[in-house]
Structure formats: structure tokens, C-alpha cells
Simulated assay, not measured.
Amino acid sequence: MKYNSILAVLVLFTACTGNHEQIHADADSATAVEVQKVTAQTVPNVITLSGSIEGKTTVKLGFMVPGKIEYIAVKEGSQVTKDQLLANLEPTNYTIAKQLSDVQENAAQDEFNRLDQLYKRGSLSESDHTKASFSLQQAKLQQKLENKNLTDTKLYAPLTGILLNRQAEAGEIIAAGTPLFVIADIQHVIVTAFIPEGELHHVTIGQQAAISIAALNKKFTGKITEVGAIADATSRAFTIKAEIANNDMLIRPGMIAEVQLNGNSDSMGILVPAESVIHDVDNQSYIYVVDEATHKAFRRKVSLGSMIDNKLQIIAGLSAGEVIVTAGQSKLTDGVSITVVK
């Protein structure tokens, strides 16, 4: 009997010791994290769109006559002013043609003057006088045409802007009407973006838009100038355009811009720190939610809305009053024990 009592004490002692060691083991394996209780707050109805920059006016230029390019005055990226010479063709053929037309016009004028005197004296028929008049008119028109062709061997900028593209080099032989240069007026630029049809009712002509350009690390204020009338057949999105004043000429066509528009009304919602949201390999977003009773963190899928002041709006998957992990979540796995640090 005495032996059985001693054995029972040893078993009880061993069990207590084992539980104590397990508690310490759990505490030692818990991951330290920072947490935050989620609260409902006013969420501005902000629509964020991605867009691209283009010049307010963009023109393609080419020579009206064929020929060999003799000279190009500007390089890609250069600023040009209205009526500045861009390039010219080798003009010899057109100069000779113009001189020949001058000779023909002078000969036709002399012939008409001589026949006109005869006509006035009654020594020339009406028909011959008319033929001489038509010959003179034809010579004058040919002279104007050759003069225009010679003038068209020089290409001038039709507006002040920047040379975006040059598709020719000196020495090349080009055909009439071939687009060789692209110039854009960038004193004002246009941001083109696409907005889902469900958000279209938030946009009006003349509405202000906050525009961020990452390449310049700057923000600008623009104005909506155009709202598309027809949705894209695939995306069901509409085109909108916003105009920005480019006073310092820093904004260039092709840059990426972020457009933010204020909706018609604010609403209550949940905002969490952006760093608390984790994305898996399938680009699914999730947050670790804390079970305060068991001191464990569980992974939960969430649906994201807009980014507002470095916080992400949670559309679904999270409720006010719940506690989430805001730091240390990269070390967690689903259901792991945690310890909260201040």
C-alpha cells in the first residue's frame, strides 16, 4: 500500500512537470507581433484610375513633294517653335522647274500683248484672242504650281511643342505625304484613363482631378475635358480625359499617371495599414486576425478597395472590433501562437 502511494505521487509530479514544460514551450515558440483593433470610419469615396500622358495637340508632318532630304534641323526630344525650319529637300529640280515656268509665263505674256493689240485694231479674230488669253492663264497657273512645289521643299513646324519622333535621315529619298516627324504641343498635356461603367456617374465635364506622376514624384491638379460616349466592348470601361497645365514643360508624353476623382458622397468603412495586408502567389490578399482567447493568429482572405493615405480599404472579409496583426505577420502561419508586443 505504501509503495502504491509513492508511485501515485511520482506520476502526479511527472504530469505537473510535463504540463509546466509544455506551457513554457508554447510561450517560447509564440511569435511576437504588433496588433491593432479595427474600427469603422468615414471613407472618402475616391476613384483611382491609371492613365497615360499625351500632348494636347499632336501632328504628323511630311513633305508635300517627293525628293531627297538635304538637311534636318532638329533631333528627337528637342523643343521647336511655330514656323521653325525642321528639314528641307534638295531643291535643284524644283528651282529649274520654277525658272522654266517663269520663262513660259513671260513668253505667253508677250504673245498675248502682241495679239491683244491686233485684236483691238480688228486684225485678229475673237477665237484667236481667246486662245491667247487661255494660254497666258495656263502659263500663270503653271508658274504658281512650280513656285508652290519649290516652297514645299522646306518643312516648317506648325506649332510650338516638342519633336516626339523622327522617321528620316539626311540623304534619304522620300515620297510625297510620307509621315516623317511627330510634334506635340505639351504646354498643356492630356491624361487619358479608363473608368468602369459602374463609376461613370461620378464623372462630369469640368470636374477637378488629382493627378500623380511617379516619374516626376509630383502631383498636379487637372480638369476633366472629355468623357467617352461609348464603352469598350471588352472591358466595359469608358475613356475619360483630363487636361493639365505643363508650365515647367517637365511632363512628357508617354509618362504614366494616376488619376484620383472624388465620388459624390463619403461612406463608413474599414481602413487598415497597407503593410498589414499580405499577398500570396496567386495574388490573393489576406490579413492575420487575432483570436484573443487562444492568443493565436488566423489567416483570412479579404477584398481590397482604394488606397487612402497609405491605408487600404477593406471591402469584405473584416468587421469592426476585430484585432489584426500589423507587424510581424511575415513570420506567421495559419493558427500559430502569438505574443503581443507594444
Rank of each mutant, 00 (worst) to 15 (best):
T234W: 00
I244M: 14
K223H: 02
A242R: 03
T239K: 06
R252S: 06
E258I: 15
I240N: 11
E226R: 11
K223S: 14
I230R: 00
I224R: 00
V259A: 13
A231W: 04
M255K: 08
A231V: 01
A257H: 12
M249W: 13
A245H: 06
I256K: 06
D248L: 07
I224A: 07
L250W: 14
Q260C: 06
K241A: 09
Q260G: 10
G228I: 07
E243N: 04
A257L: 08
R236E: 00
I240P: 12
A245W: 06
A257G: 10
V259L: 15
I251W: 05
A237N: 04
S235Q: 03
N246W: 09
E258V: 15
I244F: 13
E258F: 08
A245C: 02
V227R: 13
T225M: 05
I230N: 01
E243L: 13
F238A: 06
D248F: 06
G222M: 10
N246K: 01
V259E: 09
E243V: 14
I256P: 10
N247V: 14
R252F: 05
E226T: 10
R236W: 00
V227N: 03
A231L: 04
T239C: 02
A245Y: 09
V259I: 14
T225I: 15
A257I: 07
K241Y: 02
I230Y: 03
P253F: 12
I230F: 00
M249K: 14
F238D: 07
L250P: 06
L250H: 14
D248P: 09
F238N: 04
A233E: 11
I256F: 13
M249T: 06
E226L: 08
A229F: 15
P253V: 14
D248E: 15
N247R: 13
A233Y: 02
I256H: 12
A229K: 15
T234I: 08
